[in-house]
Write a protein that binds this DNA or RNA. Sequence first.
DNA 1: CCGGTTTCAATCATCTTTGACTTTTCCCGA
DNA 2: TCGGGAAAAGTCAAAGATGATTGAAACCGG
Lengths: 218, 218
Amino acid sequence: MKPRLRDDPDASTPGPAGWQAQKSASTRLQIVESALRCVVDLGYSCTTTTVIAEKAGLSRGAMLHHFPSKIDIVRAAVEHLHSKRLKAFRKAIDRLPRDETRVRRALEAYFEHVKHPMYVAFLELWIASRTDPELQAILKPAQEAFEREWYKTAVDLFPEWEGSGANFDIALDLVHYVMDGLAVSLLTHDIGEHERRMVGYLEERLRELASKPAAARP
Amino acid sequence: MKPRLRDDPDASTPGPAGWQAQKSASTRLQIVESALRCVVDLGYSCTTTTVIAEKAGLSRGAMLHHFPSKIDIVRAAVEHLHSKRLKAFRKAIDRLPRDETRVRRALEAYFEHVKHPMYVAFLELWIASRTDPELQAILKPAQEAFEREWYKTAVDLFPEWEGSGANFDIALDLVHYVMDGLAVSLLTHDIGEHERRMVGYLEERLRELASKPAAARP
DNA sequence: CCGGTTTCAATCATCTTTGACTTTTCCCGA
DNA sequence: TCGGGAAAAGTCAAAGATGATTGAAACCGG
């Protein structure tokens, strides 16, 4: 029913060592991605070990061999999610041209980021972590790392803003808050004119903040 | 253990009809508020009938007499929450002076609104409703009603903007998205300088949108 | 004072989720 | 070819949540 591991094209470790054990990392990846799919499709509270195993195409017992407990799956899933978010974001930013369209394109890259199902998973986990200390202990450091990376990326992308004082921080905050608000809206209704117009408006505000005389950073 | 219903000071119906049945509406209110408290304190997924009854000070059986099923409690809780949000919001708006400080004060009123635990409950339910059709069927109409009311309130508060074309809509969207983003941020960390600064920035943008030449409404 | 109705309490059966345990299958090297 | 060990599958009991049922207590009208 399930193809042999050796034939599994999902194997992402091209290393020469073809251990059987090493190959079973593919199974772990399947489990982790199944868990994230469950969070997106069913919500965090319905993400039970049973459905994760079902969607991953294994038995529960097999899964609990790789991850002794549910929290271990969650931990691995969060790390995987964080890594994917970061990689996708950096990739999108790295291919931006260094011309006039940078602002617009960076905004749209970030907008794509929050439209992605990955961000839905993140929001589900984020909300759940409010009342789940164990999850919070896992998610908070990952998110803080992401935001630091985001800040660094922004500085890297707009080096000329670095000296522009508080305007730069305000711009980042503005993008952050508006995008989060958009993400929450997009959870329940499809994208429409309001959302697109807001991205356009954001762009104008960013250009304005970039050109305005620098406000003193407190 | 529980005071007699007749002595219950929570009774909000000052009508002359002192029916026993009428008074038991107080018990229903207790249950509903307990449910909302549970959503805020424990999250929606941990809001079980058992803890609701516990926090309300009744037995589970007694509670299930008033609300035959859990979804009935949720329905009543959503309606109560919606009503409370609306009333609190209108009250905050109605006492705003009609002077220059309107914009700032309206913003702060809305900020207070999203800082309130009530809004945490709403967010929890909103996220949960993404993957819970039954909850969505209850929550979505309530939220749409709230947003319509919000729009009407805004028009009422800033009548001179009504003719200012798309700028008015953009201003409302902007406030909406930024405040939602702030609310998500405030879920997990306390309010700080970033949040306050953003409210200040929002105020500037609203004044700008109000004074700028009207953009054609599409 | 009494009977009926409403409110409250307690118990029960069912279902789901979880983690531990046991068994079977498969891969690799000797 | 065979045996060791990892991977996968299946089984089990404990805990928790839900809804239904039954029994007790309080209140009202007559």
